[in-house]
Design a protein around this nucleic acid. Structure first.
Length: 642
RNA sequence: GCCGCGGUGGCGGAAUUGGUAGACGCGCUGGUCUUAGGAACCAGUAUCGUAAGGUGUGAAGGUUCGAGUCCUUUCCGCGGCACCA
């Protein structure tokens, strides 16, 4: 038995009445909604797997010599029905009691008791040795008409499908393992493997064998896919079962026995339960000294009599408040909606504001929320949408996962490893702008990357460099900066390229290359003796997202009263981002041999002539004859020589 | 086991999407300045080679005039799921 982390108290299982949200009703909706979202593929995949849709068929297996209702099983592989040689029902299955024979009763009861003792973890441990017990009863395979032993085993879960399976040991690894252990028959019905050695589970183009019976049907020779279709058709026609869909997604346990959490607005009365009247909402937590758990495992709220008891005007107790509280998710599932209208006292949000702001254009968050938060809030939003309370079906249009900053040893930061970097210390020493800049510069936003204080120092150096360009030693605007300067061609080119690239990179969340461009530009400006004031104005604006504090400082030094935050992004001249001379690479047989500088958009003849005039190139081309010339304007010239 | 992501210098990472691999930064080497240390600045820095030149994006093949980028096989690392019938 486990012990609690704090205090080392024993942990045990106990049945409790809880609140559950029926998220399973929205499984299909949540799955379909994923399609149009601009989310990372892996997150969509995680949600898809979490929902775990599977399509198959539910089939009734009648019990031999019994008038009891048949056992219903769920399978996705109805093509292997002829290979089903035994059945297994979960220990919790309601039919266990009625099926078990007198002779086996004791053994089965003992087995069920044992499984009850196991934790969920032990029961689902994959490498666990499978256990089970024969019930003494038999079922009839509806297609092969053969008798099948019915077993109870805890490798079948009551919570999935129908809680009962047809076992096909030839083509299912779990069933194969179980059949081997208990010496149950293994039958090959899909060709391609050796079922005496292992279950053969490939589907691909595999062909069905040993699957016909004169009184039912034959699927021999069909592919798995076709056999599935044909068997389902037959099963439905003969009313042996129906097509069915299953999801792994479970209903959502939504109550906690804690103080901190929204109370459920429910009052229990002698006649049942009712919701708190709208004018009495919200139900607030009582202010108390002690919110430690109670001794009996109930919510701490249950011990606060004055809060629990709801009285009418004459002081009679008319009901008792629900004392469970909601989990943290209750807030995180809809906070973004409240953000659209945070001061609204009458409603959670107004339709107008919701319509204006929603959906969230870009949601940046960690990958750890891939399934829980991001699935739960989608669920709430779907429900709200169905209730007509929000205007979009999906809450978050684009999702982006930022990577984690690791310790300088490349491992996740943790106190026990001693590799934690405290931002406050960094900010004290280098300033918030240097830290921000470094975090942007480290690498792609979505990648995890190790912290490196040396790298941060590089950014700190850059910040100082920029300061030195703009500010003189007395803290005034540098005398290098003047109104009447005409920038040279190179400076102008760099300037416009920088505005363009930084803007584009921000748009694409490529902050690291945006910073790099700023560095390139500043390295150049540093060498200039005179700099036009106009250029500095723009530079300060494009630096602002990366160094907001310093940029404001520069902005005010430039004589502005208002915040830089109100400025527009500067324009750039596309013409000036281009150069009129380009370097064209000359290759011979794909190997780099020389560079030539040409006027922009030169034609092929000009390029070829310029290239062949070079001795370096000529040396190679003269070794044979030029059979082909590839020219990519402004880029490359390649001679194919044979 | 299944699904997803990723392997580029000593390190973090660039590469206009098939067209000069290594931008920018760190580190390192040499230099200027300095009594010295630090800072700052200048030059160099994938690798083998004195050079000419050769080789290089985890590995092996393939497509192409040309591959970090596309295709096939394979190895390694990270994340998620895991008896879901």
């Amino acid at each position: 038995m486990g012990k609690s982390d704090i205090g080392g108290h024993p942990v045990y299982r106990t049945p409790m009445k809880q609140w559950v949200l029926k998220i399973t009703k929205y499984a299909e909706s949540l799955l379909n909604g994923l399609e149009d979202l601009d989310w990372p593929e892996n997150i969509k995949e995680l949600q898809k797997n979490w929902i775990g849709k599977s399509e198959g068929v539910e089939i009734n297996f009648s019990i031999k010599d019994s008038s009891e209702e048949p056992i219903k099983v769920y399978t996705t592989r109805s093509d292997t029905l002829f290979g089903a040689t035994y059945m297994v029902i979960a220990p919790e299955h309601p039919l266990v009691d009625t099926i078990v024979t007198e002779k086996q009763k004791k053994a089965v009861e003992k087995y069920i008791k044992e499984t009850q003792k196991k934790s969920d973890f032990d029961r689902t441990e994959i490498n666990k040795d499978k256990t089970g017990i024969f019930t003494g009863s038999y079922a009839i395979n509806p297609l092969s008409k053969e008798e099948m032993e019915i077993w109870v085993a805890d490798y079948v879960l009551i919570s999935y499908g129908t809680g009962a399976i047809m076992a096909v040991p030839g083509h299912d690894e779990r069933d194969w393992e179980f059949a081997k252990k208990y010496d149950l028959p293994i039958k090959e019905v899909v060709k391609g493997g050796d079922v005496t050695k292992a279950a053969f589970i490939d589907k691909g183009d595999a062909i069905i064998v040993n699957s016909s019976h004169p009184d039912t049907l034959s699927i021999d020779g069909l592919t798995v896919e076709k056999a599935i279709k044909k068997t389902i058709q037959y099963i439905e026609k003969k009313e042996l079962g129906t097509g069915a869909v299953n999801y792994k997604l479970r209903d959502w346990l939504f109550s906690r026995q804690r103080y901190w959490g929204e109370p459920f607005p429910i009052i229990h009365t002698d006649d049942g339960s009712e919701t708190v009247k709208e004018e009495d909402l919200p139900v607030m937590l009582p202010e108390v000294e002690n919110y430690k758990p109670s001794d009996d495992g109930k919510s701490p709220l249950s011990t606060i009599k004055s809060w629990v008891e709801v009285k009418d005007s004459s002081g009679n107790i008319v009901g008792l408040r629900e004392t469970n509280t909601m989990p943290q998710w209750a807030g995180s599932c809809w906070y973004y909606l409240r953000f659209t209208d945070p001061l609204n006292r009458d409603n959670s949000w107004s339709k107008k504001k919701e319509k204006y702001w929603m959906p969230v254009d870009l949601y940046i968050g960690g990958q750890e929320h891939a399934v829980l938060h991001l699935l739960y809030s989608r669920f709430w939003h779907h429900v709200l949408h169905d209730l007509g309370l929000v205007s979009t079906k999906e809450p978050f249009k684009k999702l982006y996962n930022q990577g984690m900053i690791l310790g300088d040893d490349g491992a996740k930061m943790s106190k026990s490893r001693g590799n934690v970097v405290n931002p406050d210390d960094i900010i004290d020493e280098y300033g918030a702008d240097s830290m921000r800049l470094y975090e942007m510069f480290m690498g792609p936003l979505n990648k995890s990357k190790p912290w490196n204080t040396k790298g941060l120092q590089g950014c700190y150096r850059f910040v100082n460099k920029l300061w030195a360009i703009i500010v003189d030693e007395e803290g005034k605007l540098s005398s290098k900066i003047a109104e009447d300067i005409t920038p040279d061609k190179e400076t102008l080119h760099l300037h416009h390229t920088t505005i363009k690239k930084v803007g584009d990179d921000i748009e694409n969340l490529h902050f690291n290359t945006a910073v790099s461009q700023l560095m390139i530009y500043c390295n150049h400006l540093q060498k200039c003796n005179k700099i036009s004031r106009d250029l500095i104005v723009d530079l300060v604006k494009v630096s602002a997202p990366f160094m907001p504090h310093l940029s404001e400082e520069f902005w005010s030094l430039l004589g502005n009263k208002d915040s830089l935050a109100y400025e527009n992004w500067p324009d750039y001249d596309e013409q000036l981002t281009q150069t009129d001379e380009v370097t064209v690479v000359v290759q011979v047989n794909g190997k780099l041999r020389a560079n030539i500088t040409l006027a922009k958009d030169s034609d092929e003849t000009t390029a070829v002539n310029a290239a062949l005039a070079l001795e370096k190139v000529e040396n190679y081309t003269s070794k044979g004859s030029i059979v082909k010339t590839i020219y990519v304007p402004n880029r490359l010239l390649n001679f194919v020589v044979k």
